[in-house]
Amino acid sequence: MAMKRSTLDLWVGVFVAAGLAALMFLAFKVGSMGAFDVASSYTIKADFENVGGLKVRAPVKSAGVVVGRVSDIHFNPETYEAEVMLNIDDRFKFPKDSSVAIMTSGLLGEQYVALEAGGDDKMLAPGDSLKITQSAVVLENLIGQFLYNKGDGGGESDKAAK
């Protein structure tokens, strides 16, 4: 195919530009690049009795706004508890006595870490661990408890009826 060099260059230029534009579209419009990951962050630690279905990269929210991400979850064989590392955005400082809880968005949605600010004057430093933690609510336990209570209540009403 005989084609003038300038035409060829033009087409290839258009092609490469379109390819890069598609990549930009994927990175910024489809993905969330630049939203949180690139910001500098500090890590704090929290021990939970049960993390339920919490996953690495789950959001950390304070007042419902994402302020960080879960960076690592592992089991501590000495305390038999789960150690969760939280990456918090550097722009946000939280008091030392802040508390964390594992919550679920919606009834069956993904689990996230809710970080509630305390009243202490001192702020959390990188590497600190949070003292007040509340484990994930395990749905099966909740249902079990509910049925158990209901069973008890049902028994009493049976007696009353007699």
Partner: peptide
């Protein structure tokens, strides 16, 4: 060189 660009364009068009 062409292949990743084409794949990116395919995905972008698909979205």
């Amino acid at each position: 060189i062409s292949m990743p660009m084409l794949a990116a364009m395919f995905s972008a068009m698909g979205v």
